[in-house]
Design a protein around this nucleic acid. Structure first.
Lengths: 228, 228
DNA sequence: CAGTGGTCTAGACCACTCT
DNA sequence: GAGTGGTCTAGACCACTGG
């Protein structure tokens, strides 16, 4: 056996083929590729799997088959816009959870007709009397909390990691389960340090770039330590 | 065929088993699980694959086999520390590329004896005469550029997305190829807008949380637009 | 109906690592 | 040497979709 796995050789060849095809071009069927490359269909599928996870190919059941994914479809979302709840949304759902004390506001983020993310916020019902009745689902959540309940938010330090889409999330994002997603979460406090909002955003990793801010100058306190 | 794939049933059962085992416990071999569950080894492997990608299991070649991954092993890295190059590093390599005009500084980020990321920076050699000789590999890169070449950096807007580890990266990070990683990139300009630094950081998604800053108050200009 | 991707099987050989 | 995970094959059946 060669040092380079055959499925990786296949992936490289498929990538070459892919890069020369226009968006939405039908891709050769798996069985055809298997015969063409002299490999088993299983091996070809392993290569295709990775290309699908990277968002370079789209697979559909039935006669449609595999096709080249539309490129240049990377949506830039700013962290600030996510936090402020300014991204384009649809299907906003407000639920109460448990002993009616927790409010959950969940919305699907849409860009260019595609669902690209889910934003979910948890609030304490006792802190926001009448929320479910007063809240206009089209309004930015944070602005509403600020205007209606006079919340003044303090510093915010979201954290970000990767995850694999659960079956429920995969359904909402129209991707396969176990697709890699970007997971961003934060806890918001008011100026007195009282917890106000617990939020969580999941973005399709193959369709979004999250833009952020970074300190441009080294603060002395940071320079002395190893890490934050 | 049932509506729920067998490999997903296997995954659920394995997750139950997993949750009751302490960290680093040896996990049953694949062939044993296949017989126990009455499934083929291929199907069991598909379930195990996802658990490995989620960082819940660790697989090693040879007699060691599969074991329960150490939990609570999430390392918090701040975006600012990454940008300033303050994270703990090792094996810093300085290369020149092409017609000797591009300098590449690449380092492996280490936390708790594990490689958790790779930081790669590209500079123009003509802009930094003598860089390779002068640069102390242990020093924070940005501080060095600032001290030695009087660079003053302007605003910075890194962007972040998910990717799958290439074979080379996978080797450096000690993970399997196609493991989901967090990819953070930025272009740094000086105060006059001249491009200075092009950097790229890849972090193991299953071992790191990236912490960031977000604007705590809605700036008027942001509130009026849909997105940034 | 034919052809596609999705899943699953039984078996094989390899590289690696511990004993 | 024995047992592990990593890869690969050839073949099978299913669900779904279009003509």
């Amino acid at each position: 056996m060669s040092a380079i796995p055959r499925y990786y050789q296949a992936k490289t060849r498929l990538l070459d083929l892919l890069s020369e095809l226009p968006d939405n071009t039908p891709f050769p069927p798996e069985r055809e590729l298997a015969e063409l490359f002299g490999m088993s269909r299983t091996t070809i599928r392993k290569a295709l799997d990775e290309l699908v996870l990277e968002g370079k190919l789209i697979r559909r059941a039935g006669r449609q088959g595999t096709s080249v994914a539309p490129r240049k479809q990377v949506h830039r979302l700013s962290l600030d816009a996510l936090v402020q709840d300014l991204a384009t949304r649809e299907s906003v759902v407000v639920r109460t959870i448990g002993a009616q004390d927790v409010i959950n506001v969940e919305s699907v983020l849409i860009r260019g007709d595609e669902p690209i993310g889910v934003r979910s916020t948890y609030l304490r019902a006792s802190q926001f009397p009448g929320f479910a009745e007063l809240y206009d689902r089209g309004a930015p959540l944070r602005k509403f909390l600020s205007d209606r309940y006079q919340i003044r938010f303090g510093e915010l330090h979201p954290w970000c990691t990767t995850a694999l889409a659960t079956p429920r999330l995969a359904g909402m994002l129209e991707v396969r389960p176990a697709t890699p997603v970007l997971s961003i979460a934060w806890m918001a406090h008011d100026l007195r340090g009282v917890p106000v909002e617990r939020s969580w955003v999941v973005l399709r990793g193959d369709r979004t770039h999250l833009t952020m801010h970074a300190a441009s100058v080294t603060p002395p306190v940071l320079a002395g330590r190893a890490l934050g």
